[in-house]
Simulated assay, not measured.
Amino acid sequence: MAAAGSPPWTLVSVHVPKTAGTSFAEALRRVHGDGLRLDNADRPLAHARGERRLAALRQACALAGRGLPDACVHGHFLPVKYALARRTRFCVWLRDPVQRVVSRYHHYRRHGDDEPHHLRWGLVPGLSLEQFAALPQYRNTYAEYLWAFPLRRFDFVGIVECYEQDMQRFAACFGLDPARLAGERANRNPERGTGQGYLLEPAQERLIRRCNARDLALYERALGSS
């Protein structure tokens, strides 16, 4: 039984970088208000694979069998962190992996040169898109985030390219009022028009696809089940 005054379950929303997570967080806040907790301290891609996995497993053990006091938790973390908590439901948004990589590259070029962990993983000033795509730390980000937590464990998987339609599906899935979720998209690249994808040279797209084969497979699976 849930404690008096606590939500019947907690929505755990995984924000993979550059998958409309900022816009989605604003929508969640319109619905949940103070019941929304942002959990961005883990910063998975700032750490080596073994470090982030071990940290997530330790957190999972600490939360095992416990209910969360929040109505919703949203942020940059591995979902396995909350896998053993009680009364949880999970959601995630995915975006075309090629477009996501290019968006992440441009976000780094706009904002990221001063991040202390960047040099550790090869993010140096003036990096080209091709050089960024080849960095091991930033390949297959979906697969890295969803380690030990398969897509079938999510109650909802949204597709960013279908954001408005899938927000309706999200509302229906969790019994929410879609009017309260509605709002403008946030954190877009100001140099790219609304609804437009990044244009790439064929060789650039081939490189990104080759470096993100696991993410492409996850995305295709999500498209088939949405």
Rank of each mutant, 00 (worst) to 15 (best):
V31M: 10
F24R: 01
A20C: 06
N189Q: 02
S103I: 00
K81N: 08
Y198E: 01
H117I: 04
T10W: 00
G5D: 12
T10Q: 02
N189S: 11
A48H: 14
R152L: 05
C91E: 11
D166Y: 00
V157F: 10
F24W: 15
S226I: 00
A62V: 09
L38T: 00
G197Y: 01
F90A: 11
S103L: 11
S23W: 01
F132E: 12
D177K: 09
R66F: 00
F132N: 01
G197H: 04
L84C: 08
L94W: 14
R52W: 09
H76D: 10
D166K: 07
F170I: 11
E164Y: 05
G175N: 06
L223E: 13
D113N: 09
G112T: 03
H107P: 04
V16S: 03
G75F: 10
L146D: 13
R86W: 02
R169A: 15
V157M: 01
P17N: 03
E201I: 02
F77K: 06
E191Q: 13
R37S: 00
C211Q: 13
A71P: 04
L223N: 03
R139V: 01
L218A: 04
Q204D: 15
R104F: 12
R192A: 09
V101M: 11
A60H: 12
A41R: 06
R180N: 08
A171M: 11
G183D: 06
R206F: 09
S23M: 04
H117Y: 12
C173S: 09
F154I: 05
Q204H: 14
A134E: 11
R89D: 06
W93M: 03
G126M: 04
T88S: 11
A55M: 10
K81W: 02
V16R: 06
S225E: 15
D42F: 13
G5H: 03
H106V: 00
A143I: 12
Y163D: 03
A217S: 01
P79E: 07
L68T: 12
L218V: 01
